[in-house]
Design a protein around this nucleic acid. Sequence first.
DNA 1: CTAGCAGCGTGACCCCTCTCACCCCGGGTT
DNA 2: AACCCGGGGTGAGAGGGGTCACGCTGCTAG
Lengths: 225, 225
Amino acid sequence: MALSPLDVIRRVPLFESLPETELAHFAELTREKTYPKGSVILFENDRGDSLFLVASGQVKVVLIGEDGREVILSVLGPGTFFGEMALIDDSPRSAHVIAMEDSTLLVLRREDFQQRLRSSPEVAIGLLRELSRRLRRADEKIGSLVLLDVNGRVADLLLRAAAEEGGDLIRRKLTHHTIAQMIGSSRETVSRTMRDFVERGFIMVTRKDITLMDRPALLSAAGRS
Amino acid sequence: MALSPLDVIRRVPLFESLPETELAHFAELTREKTYPKGSVILFENDRGDSLFLVASGQVKVVLIGEDGREVILSVLGPGTFFGEMALIDDSPRSAHVIAMEDSTLLVLRREDFQQRLRSSPEVAIGLLRELSRRLRRADEKIGSLVLLDVNGRVADLLLRAAAEEGGDLIRRKLTHHTIAQMIGSSRETVSRTMRDFVERGFIMVTRKDITLMDRPALLSAAGRS
DNA sequence: CTAGCAGCGTGACCCCTCTCACCCCGGGTT
DNA sequence: AACCCGGGGTGAGAGGGGTCACGCTGCTAG
């Protein structure tokens, strides 16, 4: 599993369009860091000046309320990146990032990245594409929080998770607690909802995965019938 | 009030860095359109291929649920733009845009804009900056929806609205109904909350504006004490 | 002037969910 | 074995806030 920095960079869609020599150059500028499960990679309000590429593992981007409750804004796996916003408009970091598993990241310094941004429009456009995608997601999430009840939000989440894996099967480990934090609900309510979905034959749950059995029903629950 | 297209373009922060000749060139490529209050400028799921600049008036970006309920994702005034996402990754439009007042917009065709994007990194970077800002906002909104109760969300909204106008005074017309749609609540609840804020001396409301009287109290209600 | 409409104020009711409190299970650990 | 701990299941109770139903006020338009 131990990929070289260059291999990791090759897998980042953002850099796809760059010639091999550029990639190698990039790999040089990179610093590798590992984070144990549960550790905080960066804090909200920090003045950060690096871009992080996920080489292995998984991290979550979270907001934490006064009372300690957590909202998961997104979960990022290998090949994705974060920390770009603070680079673009150099304001402080807008959320915490926490390792969900032991993870190794590549760290790129602001200047090295910004230079690339200025010199190659491909990278800038790739980044635009990605930010645009993330903004779309965020807007959809706002919509689901306001327009859907917990049932709908769970259905929505399941559909998206399955879509990401390109089928009806979700292998990705999703605990009820995690789901709750992603849709702004509580562990117990998610538990009851999932139970209900199983009873109604919408989904099938085993110890290690979830299978969507009745897409139409889920779609309708998620308000996109 | 009737500005020429060139004047309008000059006021768009996104194009600030461009030389005057470029701006003039841009103005040429632009088509002016007016929309009466309440009219729909673009529909969710449309395949759109234009970028819109707001010359005058005000528009809202909204999501509409199955039952017809509306969520306002953002309100855009003169000098701002929308429709860029569909250009960047050419997926269908992700929300409806509706004129809140009689508005006049400048429409720029995809090709003309994309060309500028590729040729001048300043524009690309400016756009990155703006998308980044919007993403940050969206994330904050998600946080407030999940972590705050209606009281907190109203307080949060008031603080932001005042901040945008750079003081403690909100002149911008904000009906309770509009506020409700912005924070995912109902007209009645917003009404009661505002009443409560007035009684507790947090704000002062007249027919045409709102004044923040007790920032600390509002900040604490909004969970950023 | 009178109608009509957009906004706001308020009470009553009720339901979705959150919270709290336990209990159970399976798989590592010592 | 005896524990511990992460994950999940469930009941009971309470409450925030949505919905319904009116009433009022102040514009803008005939």
